[in-house]
Design a protein around this nucleic acid. Sequence first.
RNA 1: GAUCCAGUAGCUCAGUUGGUAGAGCACAUCCCUUUUAAGGAUGGGGUCCAGGGUUCGAGGCCCUGCUGGAUCACCA
Length: 578
Amino acid sequence: MTETQLTEQEIIRREALKKLRELGIDPYPPEEYPVTAYSDEILSQYDPEKNNFQDVSLAGRIMSRRIMGNASFIELQDSHGRIQAYFRRDDICPGEDKTMYNTVFKKLLDIGDIIGIKGHVFKTKMGETTVWVKEFKLLAKSLRPLPIVKEKDGKVYDAFTDPEQRYRNRSLDLIVNPEVKEIFIKRTKIVNTMREFLNAHGYLEVETPILQPIYGGAAARPFKTHHYRLDQTLYLRIANELYLKRIIVGGFDGVYEFAKDFRNEGLDRFHNPEFTQMEIYVAYKDYYWMMDFFEEMIEKVALALHGTTRVKHGDRVIDFKRPWKRLTMFDAIKEHAGVDISNMDEDELRATAEKLGIETDPSMGKGKLIDEIFGETTEPHLIQPTIIMDYPIEMSPLSKKHRSKPGLVERFEVIVNGKELANSFSELNDPIDQRERFEQQLLLGKRGDEEAMVLDEDFLKALELGMPPTAGLGVGIDRLTMLMTGAHSIQDVIFFPQMRPEKKVVIDPKEKFLELGIPEEWVPVIQGLGFSTVASLREVKPGKLFNDITSYNKKHKLGLKNPTQEEVKAWVEKAAAV
RNA sequence: GAUCCAGUAGCUCAGUUGGUAGAGCACAUCCCUUUUAAGGAUGGGGUCCAGGGUUCGAGGCCCUGCUGGAUCACCA
């Protein structure tokens, strides 16, 4: 990037950087800076009576400055919060030389710079707990201006809110929007609470392949890639279910994985192409056991996060206190759509769906039709945590046939706030049955269902060795985090959500301009005028370019010797010839 | 993929029937030794998302595109 393409404020900061170096100050010092206190502990524990925190050392970012001649206040933001600090010229500079205060602090430091401060804590006249700074040290110079967010009486002014900029520049978002940080701290707390709960049960955290030769365990369009040494097509996993079950076959009683899964589908506020699921499989259990287990785990998460099972989400309160409501799928549909579909065949289901205003197409089998009816009429109404159980066999190729209800499987989903949170079943462990189910899926695939599962011979081989009766469950961590934090969009719970690439301005290197005979000092000027490529000079009229160049020189007080009209004409002609 | 909305200074936003681009914060220079959305004075800063079109003249009108958001569709 050339100097002329920087903004005024960026140039000023780069000049400050130079001046700091001239004063012998390293703007990026290598050595550690010992921190002895954090903003939040000082604010909560400082007591003038006790006279504590009289020798503290903090490090953080300057977020605002209020300079009053020979005394100043700044707000310092460390990883825990913000605290005010007081700088007085004669404390910073006890001797004759006032450079550290007058020049370094007042002129060369900026909002956004990272500094370390040493001093003692006191309360100002206004009663604000403040660090009285005796010495400070620049730890890292910031070269870009920060959006300035101000606040008074809880009202925020000029908040940095543009979602596009926030997601593309998450670092900046985290610096200026403290509530964003909170969400991610909570996300980790959710994961940690779950992990502790799972470990306390003695289950083993494992890792399974992300690159899979056959994708399975869910119905979704995969990302496809290629390994060149093996000359083999590989897929990014859409789920890890089939691998975890193979580990159960191997003799572990309980295994789980927090897994990044990838699905090549649309993006919206509930879907990101890569997302996180926790899947767990426990031997010798069934889906009833898993219902209790999951309720207990999620209740624990809510308590760990909020100290209560009642969680605010928008203008709703969701109560995770167990036990949750349990309904069979057919009963739920009966309740919300007013139709009993439990004994319908495919044609009757199709007619019912049409009557309910649901579009159908010939590729849809019985399972898909029931799923559509449920999704359309019932799911959005389930706000409080609800367990929907006993799904039709056609839509659940990996789960075990129901012990007493023909045509159904032992499967449940947990619906919260109208969205699926978790999916679980008594795992199908009959290898012959499993092979038939896969073959059913192949038929659906032939009918045009793009998401029908593929037959995984290696998985079947494992099942044929004998898998104990097993309960399995998958829970979406992103959606759980949204629920627990009240986040509106999945982009708010993923640090770096998928975005379309930003359009980059193509800039030719300086050398290409030099080849036209343009003197080096004029290259940034021409680029600054918007001619970022040599090709862009082809169309311009030499006279106009000459005018633009000379007036730019004058306007920006560059003090360069103007080229002649003939010289400019020659540049343009040469550009046209390239 | 469809519809609607938005894109103007580093940030948040104004910009009237088409007529020389504005504010607050930030930045620069100066004043100010307990301020807190600090205050006071002065000043600089713009490819009005991009490309076409209409017009004597476009930030504003028309067309196309790009990016984002919302809703819908898709997505266990």
